[in-house]
């Protein structure tokens, strides 16, 4: 397929834009055009240097027609995250484009887009037969390349206000789980908010951060931004400790790229033991305490 004009649709997040831009560059290899629609909170300076930027100050849900009006002129539309989830499927329907969603790997030469299904137990390869094409990527699966066009042109687009933003609740603390090299995770087995205090202590001794399974977050023991897995964060850690985590499918998806997993669980049959490098059948707290004592003992010499 001869892709000439590519449109990136994203919020004003450098990493997200750079990941989409990396993919775009693989397709055009210097011979095509990369433009972007960027959603921004204000008419701030946009963090993106592509040839043409369409800035939108507004909610994706209010911007369907405006975005469709721009997107109809492109061969390939690349999007991800909240903006992609809000707009992707509706654009496909409105513009009649072909599409692949949840893409986590691309064979650029053969124009094949891969998607994991059944909790990473199967890989589906899609081959779109026509352009225009919309690709919704699964974040943090591709390299990043910061766009660096010299003189970007910016045009601001006005959108409707059918749906109104009445409140924005910032999260208590930004956690960079996706970038952490060492993560100490806790699951249903931790049993309480207090249990996570023990894991936080261990994480701090290891210069790592704490994470949690869906079960732990849904029980209110840890906030959502600590959640690892399909509806949380994908880890890229070298080392991950899974305390009291059985290894549900959607959790294993989130630790797919971890290099070394250490699992501590009382249930010898827990699926996490098949994924982990080192396994310890033990009460999570007893082992965490022994581990903390060992680290503190070394520190105090």
């Amino acid at each position: 397929m001869n892709v000439k004009n590519i449109l990136i649709i994203s919020d004003n997040n450098t990493e997200r834009i750079s990941e989409l831009n990396f993919i775009a560059e693989q397709f055009v290899s210097g011979k095509g055009n990369i433009d972007a629609i960027i959603f921004a909170k204000d008419r701030e300076e946009l963090n993106v240097k592509v040839k043409k930027i369409y800035g939108i100050k507004g909610l994706p849900v209010n911007s369907i027609d405006a975005v469709a009006n721009v997107a109809k002129n492109y061969d390939l539309i690349l999007t991800s995250g909240y903006v992609g989830a809000s707009l992707g499927g509706i654009l496909v329907y409105k513009l009649g484009t072909s599409c692949v969603f949840g893409v986590n790997e691309i064979d650029y030469d053969n124009f094949v887009f891969k998607h994991s299904a059944y909790g990473d137990k199967a890989i589906i390869e899609y081959k779109p037969n026509k352009l225009p094409l919309l690709i919704l990527i699964k974040e943090r699966n591709f390299e990043q390349s910061l766009p660096s066009y010299d003189n970007p042109e910016t045009e601001w687009i006005d959108v409707e206000k059918t749906v109104e933003l009445v409140e924005e609740k910032p999260v208590e603390k930004e956690v960079e789980l996706d970038k952490a090299k060492i993560v100490v995770g806790g699951g249903r087995g931790i049993g309480s908010k207090e249990g996570f205090e023990v894991l936080k202590k261990l994480a701090s001794l290891l210069n790592g951060v704490v994470g949690a399974s869906r079960a732990a977050v849904d029980n209110g023991w840890m906030p959502h931004q600590y959640q690892i897995g399909q509806s949380g964060t994908m880890l890229s850690a070298n080392l991950y400790f899974a305390f009291g985590i059985s290894g549900a499918t959607q959790h294993l998806s989130g630790i797919k790229n971890v290099k070394c997993v250490v699992a501590i669980n009382t249930d010898e049959e827990a699926p996490i033991f098949k994924r982990a490098r080192y396994n310890i059948v033990s009460d999570w707290k007893e082992f965490a305490t022994a581990f903390i004592n060992q680290l503190e003992g070394e520190k105090n010499g």
């Binding site: 299904a117 990473d120 994924r275």
Partner: peptide, 24 residues
């Protein structure tokens, strides 16, 4: 029929993990 993409193949990936049980 809405032509969105052809499903070219579906396969089961094989991940090899080495596990070691530590004494408890």
């Amino acid at each position: 029929k809405f032509e969105w993409a052809e499903e070219a193949s579906v396969s089961i990936p094989h991940y090899e993990y080495v596990n070691e049980m530590l004494p408890n």
